[in-house]
Design a protein around this nucleic acid. Sequence first.
RNA 1: GGGGGGAUGCCCGAGCGGUUAAAGGGGGCGGACUGUAAAUCCGCUGGCUUAGCCUACGUUGGUUCAAAUCCAACUCCCCCCA
Length: 417
Amino acid sequence: MSKYQSEFLKIMDERGYIQQCTDFEQLDERASKGIVTGYIGFDCTATSLHVGSLIQIMMLRKLQQTGHKPLVLMGGGTTRIGDPSGKDEARQMLTDEKIDENLVGIRKVFEKLLTFGDGPTDAVMVNNRDWLDEINYIEFLRDYGRHFSINRMLSFDSVKLRLDREQTLSFLEFNYMILQAYDFLELNRTHNCTLQMGGSDQWGNIVNGIELSRRVDGANVTGLTTALLTTSSGAKMGKTAGGAVWLNEDLLSSYNYWQFWRNTEDADVGRFLRLFTELPLDEITRLEALEGAELNDAKKILATEATTLVHGKEAAEKAAEAARVAFEQGAISADLPTVEIEQSALDAGLGVLTAFVQSGLCASNGDARRQIKGGGAKVNDKAVQDERGSLGVSDLTEDGVIKLSLGKKKHVLLKPV
RNA sequence: GGGGGGAUGCCCGAGCGGUUAAAGGGGGCGGACUGUAAAUCCGCUGGCUUAGCCUACGUUGGUUCAAAUCCAACUCCCCCCA
């Protein structure tokens, strides 16, 4: 039997989402008695979020599934200031237009995983720019700044770490903390929001928000964090071959997204199945007990389930099938990522180097050259021998495409138009 | 305000007049082994029209046959004193 009464905490607990909570009992009681409104904040620094944020999105989804109301807080205002935590020199400030654009892109993922609307448990998206823009400096300091004690702020991990390492912590960053705290207060006032969730790195900020709400409004709100996600070998989650693992299809195809999950380390399979799929727990227990090569079946299920959540069932199954055909039969599947090329270019003879660059498999001709030398570049599954060679109509397969591969895992089809 | 130190490739970091596209490590990519895993071993890791050329060591100028290396100014960062 679970130690929790509420469906929400029960699920969060058994699926391994929880790292810390400011008050388990209180949250449990609230969640079992009525609707809890909870939020998580997201930065708008790119046009898409990547898998690193997926665990947070899943938490909002679980919140909604268990009968509560998720708020998605977009950091439209805080992103404008630019998070100064990067240690190298100030990163480029994002323009308002760029932020708005990013916001639109990021929104797409949430629409897939949450149900938005006006109902009592429908998700709502808010933007902290709406209230942060209005702030008057002096007024803000008088009303809220006085509740922050530097002494206490210095004791937060995020701050302490920087100071111990003798790295600068700018005043701006200090304010960043305060603005984030203010978000919670604002959401509590306007949306009756009583819960903030986030990654464990947000603990300090979350606690600040709770404290501020208590001091200013006497509100009693709660924070809940997840463990920061790393793979079993300690690598930060979310980076792979081509860079970040984006959640939006235009930045990373569903085929490649599926591949990302398919390549999960053995030791992570069970944990990821619990966090990133919605399979029943006993099924997961069975899957993670598989050993050796059989565990690969569990990885396929993980990949398909995880891809279904973000890209839909159809895309996931196509990706799974494309992978099956490509890897298990060594054949060509029409669902592999495809890049179109000019028919005329092919007629004239397309240089292999150019072909690999156009396909996106190689970054430059030089890169392509090196890959060929290393024996990792293949055309229609045959290693390229001569970097000066070119592709022509005769290289088209029966399906009318040319299959380019880099290594064993990355394939792209060239299709003349 | 005064004094000192620094800025090098994706990241960390050596080099301190020519033999430097720049040691070493990390990361990444490829190969071998496997199970599209991990670990291990090997190779590659600025661009191009590649026996050559071009661009690069914070920015801009200068000294020199020759500068990442010397000089000057500027920008930014760090440390110590006030």
